[in-house]
Write a protein that binds this DNA or RNA. Structure first.
Lengths: 201, 201
DNA sequence: TCGGCACTTGACTATTCAGTCAACGAATGT
DNA sequence: ACATTCGTTGACTGAATAGTCAAGTGCCGA
């Protein structure tokens, strides 16, 4: 039905999209196959299990999004502006998803991670890994900001984790309240946590 | 098998415990019944559906825990000490759960809320409601702290939400990393967010 | 003593689930 | 022309799923 290289791709995309919007537990392999216009046999030709698919879908999604994050966190941008651009990026992604499904969907990595952290070790590890990658971006921005004396924060490693977890919490809160406007706080939460001396923009 | 008033209670407790440790999607009604030593018919004598049980289990659990929170957040305690006691309370609960199952389980309300926010409106609403109740405790402490000039924060409503979401994020992060020691940060995250002027122990 | 009521029992249904399989097609290289 | 390889097809399995039901049991009030 679909051309060879497309089938696998389609499954990964559909799986990521559905699991993000719903939850791992409530998305079935049948549902993924139906949406991707792929037969079940083909699914199991490419993937050993639903769990393995999820891990790979999230990894592939990250790799797709990485160029955008590289741009956002480019050392060419002033350090604090990187963080502000990231806020926009996060909010945009949430808004797109919310427009598509009428629901605030929160952070896909955190949602899957929380749901399965105690159940599926590989998914837990992948979620942890992806979180770590994002924190690396933040930390780099913080280090550059500290060097330029733009923030009061000293321990950039701890600060990056703290900013990241604060954002996770805010996204979770917005998801449960199904209210995008709660994400307006993103910038000030981050800047306050970083101890930014001047609140840009 | 069990005495009349016990059956319903047992189901609620077991359900809360299992869903918290695993996830809503991965816990079956059969599993709940088996653990509670209750027949399936009895289950459906008391509850209309798995979803309704979950809502009620979470509400009941909250009511059971409320006295402890009332004690923690008692106006008899100095405002900032309330927040510190709350940190201990949260950490204790997490430690107990982790000892029982070998897994950091995170915030039960947030876990269920994120998993089902886009799927089950009643559960979403209950999760939101319980979050709101906790925030009320925090806000009251912040207001008293502000009155005593213990914190720099002005907008106590926004501050309470911010503290709560920061804690949610930290719990989520600890769950995904399955690492209790990450909760050592609780106090400083809260005190920094509140803008506490002196960092009490 | 009896009738009703709250609860129990466990077998039952119908559906959905993840995962399997053997047969089939279509390129590709030789 | 042929074999091999990669992918497709869709019917199939067996287990698990949420939820039902009719027949019980035991208690409590009249």
């Amino acid at each position: 039905m679909a051309k060879p290289p497309d089938t696998r791709e389609k499954l990964l995309q559909v799986a990521f999209d559905l699991i993000w919007n719903q939850s791992y537990g409530s998305v079935s392999v049948d549902q993924i196959c139906e949406r991707a216009h792929v037969n079940k046999g083909s699914f199991y030709h490419f993937f050993d299990s639903k769990s393995e698919l999820a891990v790979e879908a999230y990894e592939v999604n990250w790799r797709e999004k990485q160029p955008e994050l590289d741009r956002v966190f480019s050392p060419q941008n002033p350090p604090l502006e990187r963080l502000l651009l990231w806020c926009q990026y996060v909010r945009d992604r949430q808004r797109q998803k919310a427009e598509k499904y009428g629901r605030v969907c929160g952070c896909p990595y955190a949602s899957l991670g929380t749901e399965l952290a105690t159940q599926d070790e590989k998914i837990r590890a992948k979620s942890q890994e992806i979180m770590g990658r994002t924190i690396r971006y933040i930390e780099s921005a913080l280090r550059d900001a500290a060097r330029e004396r733009l923030i009061s924060l000293k321990n950039t490693a701890a600060g990056a984790k703290r900013i990241y977890t604060a954002v996770l919490g805010l996204l979770l809160y917005a998801k449960v309240h199904n209210d995008l406007s709660l994400l307006d706080e993103l910038e000030s939460v981050i800047m306050d946590t970083a101890g930014a001396k001047t609140l840009a923009v």
